[in-house]
Amino acid sequence: MSILIDESTKVLVQGITGRDGSFHTKKMLEYGTQIVSGVTPGKGGHKIEGVPVFDTVKEAVEKTGADTSILFVPAKFAVDALYEACDAGIKLIIAISEGIPVLDMVRIVAFLNDRGTSLIGPNSPGIISPGKSKVGILPGQIFKQGSIGVISRSGTLTYEVVHHITNAGLGESTCMGIGGDPIIGLKFIDCLELFKKDKETEGVVLVGEIGGTDEEESAAYIKERFTKPVVAFIAGLTAPPGKRMGHAGAIASRGTGTAAEKIRAFESAGIPVAGEPEDIVKLLKSV
């Protein structure tokens, strides 16, 4: 098992004819992902890497049975592309797109929630269930099928963490970047709920960063309701308060959301926090 995606996941690529969309379609196909269709309005009838392109998501879903969508659409068009995927009955959307206005995301998340569609991102590197399927831009070669679930708010920091897990011979069940924006779809707790039920996952690594209180909330949740071992890592101890560090979500202000507070929240919930990425593996083996 794994969570959210596996070999049976039928993927549709929104924005498939763009530079990033076509490049990563090729990479995902090489990894073995089942990509059944793509959408770019006005490019219906074309093929990209052998994948049929449609004008609308509705048509693509009807003709190819796609159940999951990945979004490479630029921010300006991403808002309607998200509504369109949901309207067409897509059950899981992975939004790689970044720079979507926060109040647009607020409305999208409410709309998707009412209709039972799950969202990863925006500003996410995607999700991978190693050996089965990759829906995202993560470099496939660093992953290995195994027993550790990884949830992260970052991109390259996730790769750094996975690199150590894979090199230690543990491997990953599913690894996902939930996105760095203030308003995102699935959050840490939602993913933990899924990992709890997944038989393949024996332990979870949670990679957080400054801003918001998602880490603090998940620490309380883990203490009360999560039975598998969890190791955490938090980036941003040296970040100056109130400064924006590239991610819209990485804002530490008003005395909440600092790295120190998050580390304290995990430690007081009995969850070990790694001092640096290398230590994650040692902690995983000890818990």
Binding site: R153, I210, L237, A239, G275, E276, P277
Partner: peptide, 14 residues
Amino acid sequence: GAGLAMATMDLIKK
């Protein structure tokens, strides 16, 4: 990447 950049800064401090 912003996350890795922050982790790098933290490590230098550590």
